[in-house]
Design a protein around this nucleic acid. Structure first.
Lengths: 214, 214
DNA sequence: TTTTAAATTGACCAATTGGTCAAGAACAGG
DNA sequence: CCTGTTCTTGACCAATTGGTCAATTTAAAA
């Protein structure tokens, strides 16, 4: 709980608080993504949110608190996308949907993905508990689903974990390495058509690669 | 040129200088990878190299100089690996070799890969020129090779760039997200056997995915 | 209106940062 | 040996950092 959080019973937030937290979180995501955790300064986040630094610390006691909230957000977005994996039992459709959603997230929310990547690269100093609990549980459970597909002969025998890593790596690459992709694309962002094509190529390579389609 | 570099004609370095630069660069790679550019402190790098901070600044005038040298290293390592792409005209063999080498680098030199990833995530503030010159030239040239394979009907029609991104993303993931992989592997590093299997799965999925093997 | 709580803010602080400097130590060639 | 260069290092500095605080204003409740 934040030090300055109102002490009223219940956790209802004022409209002012709600709005300001939203502004701060949006600015924080941007600054953390572009400068890393240490490179991000609370005064820069405050400036970008359009408020004095002291006011930022009124809403978020420490930089770490703020950071954790930003990571929370992207992690929950991914978990929601992951539901598409469960929505159906057909490997082709499940993987197609999952890749589709993750590619969309990389396009619409690249900053969150970058903050996550940064955190993992630096060995998850803040959110190691997420990895060991929520992420591990989700991963192992979906690996079982994939293993079932293998046992049923619907896809070829590969290690389910390495398939998941491949999907994560490829889809998140379009967010995390978006700047490199943009540069190699003649300093232009991928157009809607290009992005759609990338999505199609990625999906096809994976589906054919695991023998789900021929 | 470094401010304190000896002014003698020719660029021959003392043995002492050679050795100390090596020590510092090794420590710098580690610290930059684990803390990011801003999070890394010159005093920490110096401590890890076993020398006083003032001595570090005798060899490398600024933190930025040091950082650029570290990035230079990993970039050259990758460029060498990329030669395997040219060594042979068969798509199966070329891609197999390239993936193999890149996976090896991810295992043997994960820190360099992490520093690079960090730099790209933060929009390449220091090494943008590399992306626009060397990397762009290399990429476009190899995309042509891949396009030729497509035209000859040896692999299916996909966008060569998106295939390259997929290879980069997947192989580098084993370095950049190594900590996540380790956590999901029960907090144990991938064994030699596991890593070999991952390499095999990655290679097979890609080769089958682009219709190079059946 | 009065009263109480929430929100705002400039001024401030201790700690840390990248980098400097001057004085000396070690080393090389003659 | 001597002489000039390379190397080493503790002490130091201006700038920046995350975070605090007390004083004030705004909003909500009674």
């Amino acid at each position: 709980m934040t030090a300055h959080e109102p002490t009223r019973t219940g956790s209802q937030k004022t409209a002012i608080r709600e709005e300001n937290e939203r502004l701060i979180l949006r600015a924080a995501e941007d600054v953390f993504a572009n400068y890393g955790y240490e490179g991000a300064t609370t005064s820069r986040i405050a400036r970008q949110a359009g408020i004095p630094k002291a006011n930022l610390h009124y809403y978020f006691a420490t930089k770490k608190d703020l950071y954790r909230r930003v990571i929370d957000n992207i992690f929950n977005i991914w978990l929601e996308a992951a539901d598409s994996f469960d929505a159906c039992d057909d490997p082709v459709e499940a993987i197609t949907r999952y890749v589709d959603k993750k590619m969309d997230i990389s396009r619409l929310n690249p900053k969150g993905s970058k903050v996550w990547a940064n955190e993992i690269i630096q060995r998850a100093p803040i959110i190691q508990d997420y990895l060991e609990t929520t992420l591990k549980a989700w991963t192992d459970s979906r690996a079982q689903v994939i293993q079932k597909w293998i046992d049923e002969g619907r896809i070829s025998a590969i290690n389910p974990h390495y398939l998941l890593y491949m999907i994560w790596a490829t889809t998140q690459h379009y967010a995390d390495f978006g700047h490199q992709i943009q540069t190699l694309n003649g300093n232009k962002d991928l157009s809607d058509e290009q992005y759609a094509q990338a999505k199609k190529d990625v999906t096809n390579i994976i589906l054919r690669g695991i023998g789900a389609v021929h």
